[in-house]
Computed example of a mutant assay.
Amino acid sequence: MTDPRLSVDGTPVARYVLTPDLDARHGPRPYLHPVRTLAGTRVTDALPADHVWHLGASLAVQDVAGTNLWGGRTYVRGTGYTWRADHGRIVHTGWTHRAADRLDHQLQWCDPTGGVLLTERRVLTASAVPGHDGAWRLDLTSTLTAPADRDVTLGSPATNGRPGGAGYGGFFWRAVAAEPPEVLTARLTGEEQVNGCAEAWVAMTGRAPEGGTYTLVFSGLGPGDRWFVRTTMYPGVCVAFAFEETATIRTNTSRHGHYRVVVADGRLDRHTAAALTR
């Protein structure tokens, strides 16, 4: 199956890797990579040496009812990060709609035996940003539904005992940067201030290793979500579902999310980043 692409007014901006052939320990799941600005600057990384399980832009949670769908080692309370045979996968099960600017499909979040933990409907769209020729926007909407016979709890290394604001897991974007990027919100600046906040938007600006500067403006926190941000260890931004406390999808109910990323060429200031979220 050929990986679908997203385009904006005829310009290819992202490839959607639908069924990656990966080691189970990398948390196989659909992901966007490469994602590019309209001028062609690459703004995602996948399978990086420092965290091989970071896959471009994707939805992933390290603890879904005890299954690791993030990849890598699992954080175990009282023990720390440990390799366990607990890795599941997120699999595409069918298209609802497929076009150059819109991908709409069904998925299953599965445990290591293939048992279905959650079902999902996911829609990705790419569109121009009115009034800004150097930017486009990605919208990803996700509806995660629990089965009819049990609740499903979502957790993170933080909820399993890891200190240091490591509440990652959710909609995660692994960026690229030739040096540590800058990160800011309407009121805050830097990783230490932004990580764990609940600001309406987060902007990351950086320079790609191949050349070209970019700004990514993220929005879409849901109730209880927080921003997980890294700039020094690696460049990444996550809408974290369980930053401090676990989140539960109750029996036969759904969790809805709508995440938007404005992908812009150049380094944008705080005022311009804020305007792009409106």
Rank of each mutant, 00 (worst) to 15 (best):
R73A: 15
Y75V: 03
T74Y: 10
T143D: 10
H105S: 09
V229E: 01
P209K: 11
S58N: 09
E182H: 09
T11N: 08
W53F: 14
Y214R: 04
G71F: 06
L32F: 13
V194M: 07
D269K: 08
W227T: 02
G222L: 05
V152G: 04
V129P: 01
A247H: 10
D23H: 13
G134M: 02
D23Q: 14
E120P: 12
V194I: 10
V202D: 02
T19Y: 00
A203Y: 01
R230I: 05
T19V: 07
A148N: 13
A242S: 15
V52R: 15
P147N: 12
D3H: 09
F228E: 00
P235F: 09
V202S: 02
W227G: 00
F172S: 15
N252W: 08
F243P: 00
F228P: 00
G165Y: 01
T11I: 15
G220A: 05
H54I: 06
H92S: 12
T37M: 09
A60P: 00
Y234D: 14
V262I: 15
E192G: 03
G165L: 02
A14I: 02
T141Y: 05
R137K: 13
V239M: 09
H132T: 08
H258P: 02
I90K: 08
W109G: 00
D133E: 12
R36Y: 05
A178R: 08
A247M: 12
L22Q: 13
R267D: 06
A200W: 05
E191R: 03
T213C: 14
D86A: 14
V76I: 14
T44H: 07
T143I: 12
R260P: 00
P223A: 15
T44Q: 08
G236E: 11
T248K: 10
R122G: 03
T93G: 10
L103C: 07
V239Q: 12
L216N: 02
V202M: 05
A275K: 14
W227P: 02
V217A: 02
D3L: 05
R122P: 05
L140S: 14
G206R: 00
W53N: 10
Y168E: 00
T37H: 07
A14L: 08
G10Q: 08
D269E: 11
G257L: 10
P209W: 11
G224E: 06
A49L: 12
A148C: 09
R260L: 04
A65G: 13
V116H: 13
L38W: 08
A158I: 02
G212T: 06
A208C: 12
Y81L: 11
T93E: 13
R260Q: 14
P4E: 05
Y259C: 03
G266T: 05
H51F: 09
T79K: 15
G170R: 00
E245G: 01
W95P: 06
V61Q: 01
R102Q: 12
T93H: 09
H271V: 12
R25T: 15
R278E: 14
T74F: 09
L55W: 06
D86R: 13
G222I: 01
Q193W: 02
T248M: 11
R98V: 10
E199Q: 13
L124V: 06
R15D: 12
A175S: 15
G211N: 07
P130C: 01
